[in-house]
């Protein structure tokens, strides 16, 4: 009997796995199909314009072949950028701080860099990247390079609106006096989680040890202030989790009190539309704050 149940359980698990794979396959197919349909519709619409515009364009090209090349690429990225900005504005609400939690074995730096750049382009001021192995922290500079490169690719060379600052733990004591309006990318690892709470607790206990403070004075807001100072980021309103594991895997426990968690199956080959979909879902979330 026990053996039978074991078999049935394995069968059930296999079925669930097949179901999951099927759903994600369909999702990709549907997206490609929709994308192709969209392309075709656009082509059909633009065909007359292109035909009409083509002779003029060629004439110009003949006149000055160099003058045209730069503005075209420049225009494309400017167009893309303004589209992303309007997308950001059209949302009901936008998080100030978004967390990207990667719960997959091998991180893809390009995809994470893409995501970070898109987040900044729609107008999110803080982007933090986290994985439970601390891989991004270890390869900090690689991610930074990738982000700068993607920024140039996606937004054009003139990336003045989205500068990247890397605030790895503790390296920027002087920073928090400067009011910066530039978006910030932060790389987080498990040691920023419980360990930073322990450090704050140690700090408070030391001040009690030195008779500077009584244990009764310790309050939630005091601890919150200490943690805020060391991290210098607001609480994330939204965490996007990538991968098949349904857990926060130690992501900043103190800070995720009111964070909305939205999952995507993988960060590999993730598209801008996927991110926009998540942001739209976030826009629809309502918080009652206990009431």
């Amino acid at each position: 009997m026990v053996l039978l149940y074991c078999l049935l359980w394995r069968l059930l698990l296999v079925l669930v796995h097949i179901n999951k794979a099927l759903v994600s396959w369909l999702r990709v197919r549907l997206r490609n199909w929709k994308g192709r349909l969209w392309e075709r519709a656009m082509a059909a619409l633009l065909l007359p314009v292109a035909l009409a515009g083509f002779p003029d364009h060629q004439k110009e090209l003949n006149q000055d072949p160099h003058a045209n090349t730069n503005p075209v690429t420049g225009n494309r990225s400017a167009g893309r950028r303004s589209r992303w900005l309007t997308d950001g504005r059209s949302l009901e609400k936008l998080p100030v701080h978004i967390g990207l939690l990667v719960a997959e074995e091998e991180p893809s730096y390009t995809d994470i860099a893409n995501l970070a750049v898109w987040c900044m382009a729609v107008g999110i001021s803080y982007v933090s990247v986290y994985d439970s192995h601390g891989m991004f922290r270890k390869n900090n500079s690689r991610l930074l390079e990738e982000i700068v490169r993607q920024q140039q690719d996606l937004l054009g060379v003139d990336g003045s609106k989205c500068n990247v600052e890397f605030l790895s733990k503790g390296s920027d004591k002087h920073q928090h006096h400067v009011v910066s309006c530039r978006p910030t990318v932060k790389v987080l690892s498990p040691e920023d989680g419980k360990q930073s709470i322990v450090q704050a607790a140690q700090q408070l206990c030391r001040s009690v040890e030195n008779k500077e403070r009584s244990s009764k004075d310790i309050s939630v807001s005091m601890l919150d202030l200490l943690l805020r100072e060391s991290k210098n980021v607001p609480d994330p309103e939204l965490v996007v989790k990538f991968g098949p594991v349904d857990s926060t895997l130690g992501f900043l426990p103190w800070h995720i009190r009111l964070t909305e968690f939205i999952s995507l199956p993988s960060h590999r080959n993730v598209s801008y539309e996927d991110l926009l979909g998540v942001l739209q879902r976030f826009g629809a979330c309502q918080q009652r704050l206990g009431q």
């Binding site: 989680g193 419980k194 709470i197 349904d246 857990s247 926060t248 895997l249 130690g250 992501f251 426990p253 103190w254 995720i256 009190r257 009111l258 964070t259 909305e260 968690f261 939205i262 979330c285 918080q287 206990g290």
Partner: peptide
């Protein structure tokens, strides 16, 4: 709802979350 609302933040850092 897809948030923890200040519940067991410390204890569930390696738990399976199901919404």
């Amino acid at each position: 709802e897809v948030r923890l609302s200040d519940f067991l933040l410390w204890q569930t850092s390696h738990s399976c979350l199901v919404f």
